[in-house]
Structure formats: C-alpha cells, structure tokens
C-alpha cells in the first residue's frame, strides 16, 4: 500500500509498505494491504513501524497524531 508519514516540517516517509504497525488509542493495529478504510487517533508517544516488501524496516516516533487509511489502499499518517 502507498504510505505517507507527514509532519508539519514535511514528508518523513513516502513509499510502498507491506505492513505498518502502530499503537492507537484503542489498541495496537497492524495495517496490511487493502485494510478496510479506517481513521484512528494514535496513542501518545507511539512508535510507527513500517515494513517494506523487501523486509527493510523504518520506524518513527509520534507524540500525537492520527492515521487515515482510505478506500484506495493509501495510508496517511499525520504526526507531531
């Protein structure tokens, strides 16, 4: 899925991802391809773990934020 991690300073991550693991206010979620559309508020100080197709990983820490998985298999994470 197309994944974007954005903060006010710019784009932190933009690209394909196989899975994204995040702690939200209502529990930890792992988003895979074609996850059902979801908007969720991230837990404070949560770690965002992104895994690409080739197995390489990327991680970000967010103080607060929210995620937006839309119907076109695009995931956007807005973080502070």
């Amino acid at each position: 899925m197309k994944t974007k991690v954005l903060n006010l300073a710019g784009v932190l991550y933009e690209g394909e991802a196989k899975s994204v693991n995040i702690a939200t206010k209502s529990g930890e979620v792992t988003l895979l391809d074609h996850h059902r559309p979801l908007m969720s508020v991230l837990a404070s100080d949560s770690r965002i773990k992104i895994e690409r197709e080739d197995g390489t990983k990327e991680a970000f820490v967010s103080k607060s934020g929210f995620l937006h998985m839309d119907g076109n298999n695009e995931l956007t994470l807005l973080i502070d």
């Binding site: 209502s26 059902r36 559309p37 908007m39 607060s64 929210f66 807005l78």
Partner: peptide, 22 residues
Amino acid sequence: TEYLFEPSPERVLSSILKHLVA
C-alpha cells in the same frame, strides 16, 4: 467507502481539528 472510526468519530474529529489549528 465504509469507514471505521477509532475510538469514535468525535475523537477523530477533535484530533483532526487540533492538527488543523496547529
């Protein structure tokens, strides 16, 4: 599309509005 809102649509709205103000 049928969205799922967690924890609730109101909380998501608050979060978005907060980000927009920032």
